[in-house]
Design a protein around this nucleic acid. Sequence first.
DNA 1: ACATTAATTATGT
DNA 2: ACATAATTAATGT
Length: 230
Amino acid sequence: MRLDESLLTNLPPFSKLDKAAIADILQHATTRRFDAGVSVFEEGDYADRFYLLLDGYIRVVRITPHGDQVIALHIPSGQLFGIARALGRDTYPATAITASETLALSWPAELWGEFVAQHEGFSTETYKVVGQRIADMNNRIFEMATQHVEQRVACAILRLINQTGRKVDGGIEINFAITRQDLSEMTGTTLHTVSRLLSAWEKAGIVKSERKKVTVCDPHKLVVLSTGTG
DNA sequence: ACATTAATTATGT
DNA sequence: ACATAATTAATGT
């Protein structure tokens, strides 16, 4: 599959590189398309490749010994993922599931060292992305320990519309199919509680919730809920 | 303040 | 028609 290098020049990891460097990087890349809801790699797999998400969304997931899923975070397009090498690992620390139809580039893990050594933008972007995700997960740990369910769900939805939101008439909608179950797995609650919360918020005019779809009409009120007002 | 259980209804292929 | 998703009420910790 042939790829236009102009597709990459505006993406953060490549924005500081010249055409020759990009062409070189592209030569070693593999392009792959994934359907929604399939796994790109699984926790514990040998990390033989690293990825750049061109289009779509990736859901980073871990499975408990009882078989329950916990959604750690979502990755928007333009970001690197599966970068176990950057964390000093040779296996993936979590499972990556596509949250929508997805297009991704990937390279053999052996090239990781070369990339970060030779391309300034590549390494700084890596630090940035890794830092963001640590902060993200850090916040989640704090929320889990201190906030109530309603506040956690509000936070989760706010994060989703910030990172993966799309403006539509009447609000901002989450740009991929998301179920009550998904939201419960992100917030450590049940789909029933999420359903009740969304119903209540819909009556209050804060959100509009349909099947596999959530639109935020009044972000400000959600922020108020997320910080706790009772 | 939440989970669990269970019954019921809606929605997409 | 069938499976999956969502709602709702009742009951439990």
